[in-house]
Design a protein around this nucleic acid. Structure first.
Lengths: 137, 137
DNA sequence: TAATATAACTTGAATATCAAACAATAAGAT
DNA sequence: ATCTTATTGTTTGATATTCAAGTTATATTA
């Protein structure tokens, strides 16, 4: 029952991961830089702690990643008056452009995935994902 | 149009990755060992090259991973008459058990995901995934 | 003010990964 | 048959990824 669905799901995740890795390797970003960029692109300003949480890694790891993003000029740290311990990370123009480009690849993958589906199937698939995301993750 | 669906997909993949990582960290396997185990558990015997391909890494990387699996007694290399360059990797009893345990977690996650869906939705979801997997990955 | 908590960084160590070079073996060509 | 080329897997050297634990600076609470 669930066995077959599980295998399809694993194949799906696996396919996505491989695709993602090959996209990233073809860019001038490393994997963790790309992951950080994906998150930062969706948020105007973000402190280290919430970025770390979103990425599912420790703040120490995030420090290293943001160091590199900063060195490569994709992002920069901004301090804030309210709490002087906090660093807000913002994307530079270069960072925003890199995010857009990366995001476009995601859009293209989505288009390719749904190209085999009918309008109805797409809608249904979207609804199902929403439900699962709300409930499970 | 595709924008929203893309975001749900990214959230979905992200949720799965985080879940997978936390499961693995709670076990006595590393991430790459677990990935190799996932593949090896589905194949009786597998040579290094095809294992590397399935994992989406180089054979050099796979050598290291299999070395550790072997050292930890989860798998072993077997040589073959037909082609003496080839190493066939097989799981030990301990490896098979670890695979089963890991796979059970996947089954549980699937159950949890579909618990919000109707019978019809589950069938539809399954069909859609099959189509996408066939076409895209 | 003193004690405690929090945000981010640093350090040291283990893993993960790649590209390139290498060794052993197989397959194909002349 | 032997010479050349291709393939399988390992090794090497380098970089990247990550964590846990400890540190520093700043906030919050008692």
């Amino acid at each position: 029952m669930s066995e077959e669905l599980t295998n399809e799901l694993l194949f799906f995740f696996n396919g996505f991961s491989s695709w993602e890795n090959s996209i990233v390797r073809a860019s001038d970003l490393t994997i963790s830089e790309a992951h950080a960029l994906e998150v930062l692109g969706e948020h105007e300003k973000m402190n280290m702690k919430s970025l770390a949480q979103k990425l599912g890694v420790t703040t120490g790891t995030t420090t290293v990643t943001v160091d590199r993003l900063e060195k490569k000029n994709f992002a920069k740290r901004e301090s804030t008056q309210e709490d002087r311990r906090v660093n807000l990370i913002v994307l530079t123009e270069k960072g925003k452009k890199a995010f857009e480009e990366h995001h476009n690849y995601h859009l293209q993958l989505t288009e390719q995935m749904v190209s085999v589906l009918s309008e109805d199937e797409i809608r249904q698939f979207h609804d199902t994902l929403k439900k699962i995301n709300m409930e499970t993750f």
